[in-house]
Design a protein around this nucleic acid. Structure first.
Lengths: 203, 203
DNA sequence: GCACAATTGGACAAGGTGTACGTTAATGGG
DNA sequence: CCCATTAACGTACACCTTGTCCAATTGTGC
């Protein structure tokens, strides 16, 4: 059907069909929301036969997944560079934050569709981010104290908090610049929330 | 159909039907997951006519929502008590955490169904928690400094982090006791994550 | 140019969704 | 205790989506 080992032999028709389907899905998400989209809708809007759709993807979720997977590469590449660069731990930790925020700013339509697009997209992004953060924590080493918090709990805590901030940012039109949101998120994560609530918090 | 002003005039048949539907939905969620459930499934398992279902609820989501709304009351009531009780700010902030964790422990089947149950349930819980946290922050007052972080961002940060922790806890069989998870979450939120990652973090 | 692969469009069965309506049975006030 | 009220039933209906199949057509790559 589509299986080819060499990268040179990707039929133009295949590439065109897949690209069209991805673009159409994203535009439809912005228009009517992910849940409300049917495979028929996608095919109609993309001018692609419904049989053709099933020749490439098994479901709406499948199409969505394949569209997001390239994001994983972007984040891992940038993180590898960041970890290789020497510098203060405080400044290089949580490095995915700025990367993803800028990626979102540069592909604002795509990301607004993703966060507005129901469970599937968010779930995939959460998965990717969890892997990234887990790697980062493993690289920086973790505390050995007796009352230590499970590493995975910290990962889920950070990812959950970040995705909530990202969603909030996108839902409000991505008004503040990425650098500022990045700064706020990292301060909350590193300093805790108390200094930002009560007037007499710790510095 | 059902509209009655006085609380005494709730037909037993109505109450019985609704309760049955709620119970059935929860048990089905545990069995096959929220998404895979059809209204037919619910009615068959509940021995309720499908027409009867539509006489009470408009959709699966509608049924789910009405089942979770009572949770809101529980959280708000407990929070009101907590805020009325004098004590150190550090100890009474984020009070919803223990409340919800214990509620989850006491209704473990229900909550495992909820977090496993797709977007809808999580979305409703997120909404409720956001309201609770927003109230709490408003009650404790917020920092007036110039570089302040938007209040709503803090709310979303906290709720996102908490729900991730809660989900993680439930997905792992709710092994550690609520008090311990509560302690870990609040320490992460108040102290930040750095002290729990690097060996040389701030106290 | 030619063999091959991809796309097309139509047809098909299976199954879910809402709605309508006449019938049956339970409820609760008088 | 009886009966008007009201919920529940179940059947039928039209409409839609899904997933699969196939023959015919079109576009590619060699």
């Amino acid at each position: 059907m589509v299986m080819q080992m060499t990268k040179t032999s990707i039929d133009r028709r295949v590439a065109r069909t897949r690209a069209t389907l991805h673009q159409t899905l994203m535009s439809l998400i912005l228009k009517q929301g992910y849940e409300a989209i049917t495979i028929r809708d996608i095919c109609d809007a993309a001018n692609v036969g419904r049989s053709t759709f099933y020749a490439h993807y098994t479901s709406k979720e499948d199409l969505m997944r394949s569209g997001i997977e390239n994001l994983r590469q972007v984040l891992f590449d940038r993180q590898r560079d960041a970890l290789a660069t020497p510098g203060d731990l405080r400044h290089r930790s949580l490095g995915f934050s700025l990367t993803l925020l800028e990626h979102a700013r540069d592909h604002i339509d795509l990301h607004r569709g993703l966060v507005g697009g129901g469970t599937v997209a968010l779930g995939i992004i959460r998965q990717i981010l969890s892997d990234v953060v887990r790697d980062e924590i493993a690289a920086t080493g973790d505390k050995k104290s007796s009352d230590a918090i499970p590493r995975e709990l910290v990962v889920q805590y950070v990812v959950g908090a970040y995705m909530a901030v990202l969603t909030w940012w996108l839902d409000r039109g991505a008004k503040p610049p990425p650098t500022e949101v990045d700064r706020m998120f990292r301060r909350l994560a590193t300093d805790g929330i108390l200094p930002h609530l009560a007037e007499g918090g710790s510095p």
